[in-house]
Each structure stands twice: as structure tokens, then as C-alpha cells.
Write a protein that binds this DNA or RNA. Sequence first.
DNA 1: GCCAATAGATTGAACGATCATTCTATATCG
DNA 2: CGATATAGAATGATCGTTCAATCTATTGGC
Lengths: 202, 202
Amino acid sequence: MIADDERNPASKADVRREQILAAAQTCVLEQGFHRASISKICKLAGMSPGHVYHYFENKEAIIAALVRRDLDHVLDFTAGMRASADVLEAMIDRIPLGVAEKLDPRDASLKLEIAAEASRNPNIARIVREADACSLKSLRQTIAEARRARGLPDDDKTVAELAVVAAAMFDGLVIRGVRDPDTDREAVARRFAEILRGVFLA
Amino acid sequence: MIADDERNPASKADVRREQILAAAQTCVLEQGFHRASISKICKLAGMSPGHVYHYFENKEAIIAALVRRDLDHVLDFTAGMRASADVLEAMIDRIPLGVAEKLDPRDASLKLEIAAEASRNPNIARIVREADACSLKSLRQTIAEARRARGLPDDDKTVAELAVVAAAMFDGLVIRGVRDPDTDREAVARRFAEILRGVFLA
DNA sequence: GCCAATAGATTGAACGATCATTCTATATCG
DNA sequence: CGATATAGAATGATCGTTCAATCTATTGGC
């Protein structure tokens, strides 16, 4: 075989790890952390239970990797925003997309599971909080830039407060999507834009 | 023994049921639904595992009762609001309390666990959605009354949209409390009040 | 070019623990 | 006495994890 480590950065081991994580994600999504057993995961990943432990130390390591992967994905999503010329318009343009994604019950399940686990598992909490600090920082930069462009004060305190409120608004949609699946996405997006313009840029 | 069902509505059976629910709540709070086993619950409640099944058909019935009890408590909280003379002031006065409660990580654990479970367990979903419909209705009435008192349009569509956004804002705090335990409660409460006055009453 | 040696990939049975649940036996009380 | 309350052992399933055995593929000697 041609050496993977030179021609292809995704070695066989990496592929296997990814298979396990994908299977674990499906299981957690469908049944939650508690019922996502190793036996189900390895069956879905098409390998034996013993082999799973060749790539992950234990079940918690799988969960931690899953959490980290999901949070990395979120960070990627927000990263593109600050690259735009008009940051505010980029934010507002993305609201309908962000609202739709957060309200999607398929995503909600995993995110809620992660949050619940973080509220009592210190290892998961650390991962979640690192990602959140990074995500909030990005949001603060975006808000500060939008305010500067409009000649508004962009002191740290103001910007930080607005970022927390904005984060809370979007985070809340994850719960709303579960509590009321028929939530009107268009209306929420419109009202969110209204708040963004009316409060965040005033 | 004096007949409980006449003199005291809390019969011995009700007391036992409540013991079980209290123990179950503690277990779920500390370890989540998955690790809240019958053996732990019955040990904490001070009774044998067999006896638990004398009062609940199975584990899911305990969880369902726990969910229902938690949601009833939330409905009680919001019910008092509409009784006030000045509904808007009552709403705004209650913001700091509501913010503090939602950001409390002790409450968050149970609420997130319930939401996560609802996103894939139809029985739990039904209970959660019934309670949410009730809670949202209450919120709509409050907002409509506040707007009427200020001569603002109180058409159903507008009010419904605002209620959803307000619910999302507070729901989001549950997740924020987990993701960033150091969230500034005073600042969030102040900004929320600002949004309530600036957007909901305009 | 072939064969033995070796190292990594993979298996699946087995382990002890714990799970939700059931059942029978005993205790308590009206 | 009859009925309800309660206990706790037993059941079979499933859990996370381990481990010795087997397969596969690459390497090095000839």
C-alpha cells in the first residue's frame, strides 16, 4: 500500500475513528447519550466492540470527541461572518439561515444532549465552555465592527452584553424548536432582525 | 388511621409517590435520566425497588410524572403575572428574577434533560408541548394586555410573534448558564428590559 | 519471486456490574 | 381476618470493558 501518511493525510486509523464518530452521532441523535451503547455504535459502524476500544480509550472519550466535533462545526459556521465587507448586513442576511438551523429538531437533540451533559460532567463542560468562549469572542468582534461602522460606541462592556443577549436569543431557539415544532421561522427571523437593528445598533 | 382522602388530600400513597418523585428529581439532577436508576432512586427514597413499582407502572411513568410536575411549577410561576394591575411593570419587575432562575445551573440540568428527552420521546414530547402551549398562551395574554394599555395594536399575529421571541430569549438563558456560568445576570436583565420596552411595546 | 517473520487490524466470546422489572414472602394495620 | 404496604431476592437483558485468538498485509532474507 502507498504510505497514507505522505500521500493521504486521512490514514486508515483516521477513517476508522470517523466511522465510529459518525455511528455514535447517529445513535446519540436517535436515542440520547444514555441509550447510545457501545454495542449499538459498533454494530452501526460495522466493527466489533473490541475494535472500538482500539481507537478510543472508553465511551466518554467517544462522547467527548463527538462534542468537540460538533462545536468545531459551529465555530466554522460563525467564522465566515466577519470576513464580509458589511458585517451588519452579513449578520442580518444570515439570520433566517441561523434561525432555521437552530429550530431544526434534528440538530436540537444533539445540542440539548450536549448541554445537559455539560451541566454535570466536568470534562464535557470544559470542552463546551472553551468552544463557547471562542464563539462569543467572534460574536463580540462582529458586533463591535458593526457598531464602529455606524459611529456607535463600541466599548467592551456594551459589546459583551449585547453578544450575550444575542447568543441567548439564538440558543433559545433550540429549545423552542422542541417545545413547539410549528414555530414560524419567518416571523422569528423578522423579529430577530428588528431587534438587531433596533437595539444592537442604537 | 383517620381517612386521609377526606381529612387530608395527601394520602399515604400520595406521600410515597411524592417521596419517589423527589428522589428521582435529585438523581436526574445529579446524573441525568440515563444514570438515574431505579435502584438509586429507591435507595434515596428509602424504600425497596419492588415497592416503587407499586406506585408507578415503570420508570418512564416516573419520568413523565417528574416532567409534568416541573412544568406545572413553571406554569404557576407565570400565572401570577397577569394578576397585576400594571402588567408591563409586573413583567419588567420580574425580569431579574426570571433571568436569575433560568441562569441557575441547578435548574438548567433538569430542564435541558427534559428538552432533550422530548426531542425523541413522543410521550415526553406531548407533555412538554401541552405545557408550552399553555405557557405561551399566558405570555400572549400578558403582552396583549400590556400593549392595549399603551394604545398599541394587539392583533393576534403580532402578539404571537412577540411571545415566541420573548420565550426564546428566556429559554436561551438556560443554555447560556451552562455554557458560561459567569454570565452577568444584572447586565442580561437590564438588556432584556431594554428590548422589552423598545421592541415589544413599539 | 517466494516464504517466513512480524506488526497491526480485527474479531467475538467472556466478565462482572448494573439495569428495569417481577414475584413471593412477610409485616402492618383496619 | 383481610387487605394493603413493604421487603428483597431472583430474572434475564444489557451495559462498558477486556483479552486471547485470528486474520491481513507488509517486510526482509534468500
